[in-house]
Amino acid sequence: MEHGAGALSCKGTSLMSKSETPAELLIRKLESIGELSGSQRDALGRLEAARVSVAPHTDIVREGDRPTSVTLLLEGFCCRYQLVADGKRQITSFHIPGDLPDLPFLFLSVADHNVCSLAPSQVAMIPHKAMLGLFREQPDVAHLFWRGTLIDGAIFREWMVGIGRRSAFTRVSHLFCELIVRMQAVALSSEYSVELPLTQTDIADALGLSTVHVNRTLQEIRGAGLIELRRGRLVALDWEGLCEAGEFEQTYLHRQRTEAV
């Protein structure tokens, strides 16, 4: 995996190709888990951010790094991962646009895991100084970020329960439910259809399964008429059924506005 200045081609502080700015996406994300006042939104809008293109399978943060900025994922897909002694990869979380996968290093100086892109991605790098300035100026916004990391923790717990106690069928179904709801929260899905640039290996590494087991499980879920997989798109054909198969209760995602679903 590439790393360093060469891997991240910096395009500077340009506007996003879509009409939305990084700040607007961040505001949308924060409003999916809490409320923001006008002045808070303005303060977020003033955050400086450098927009960077990241090739797929590029490390954004490596274990041992001391990041000086937080990464806001604008487009694409990222994950946190660790390598075990025999070289096997364990993915510990998936990240979608609006997420800040390396936010913990704002307060934990040394990275204890890796963050990498799984698809061609666009990110905005917000200097730690700017983040800390925002928190001083708007403590309530800091609380919202805190809430975000608590939800992160809730997602970790749910994954732990899955890997420890659930069957492959339930695990994969649960992951699909989670990703669909998270993407709906930042309006990245139309109904129950989402862009999912994950390989079966990515899913296997996230759920502690072998690739062929994931492959088999996908056919089972598909065979049960719960999902459809088409060119990197995941469609939940039977949302209720998929939730039941995945023992999925979305409370742990603590969404502010659940009526959108």
Binding site: S167, L209, S210, T211, H213, N215
Partner: peptide, 15 residues
């Protein structure tokens, strides 16, 4: 990969 899958599926099937 198939072998690893079969090994993991053994326990699920027995269960």
């Amino acid at each position: 990969e198939a072998f690893h899958a079969a090994r993991a599926m053994w326990s699920e099937l027995l269960a």
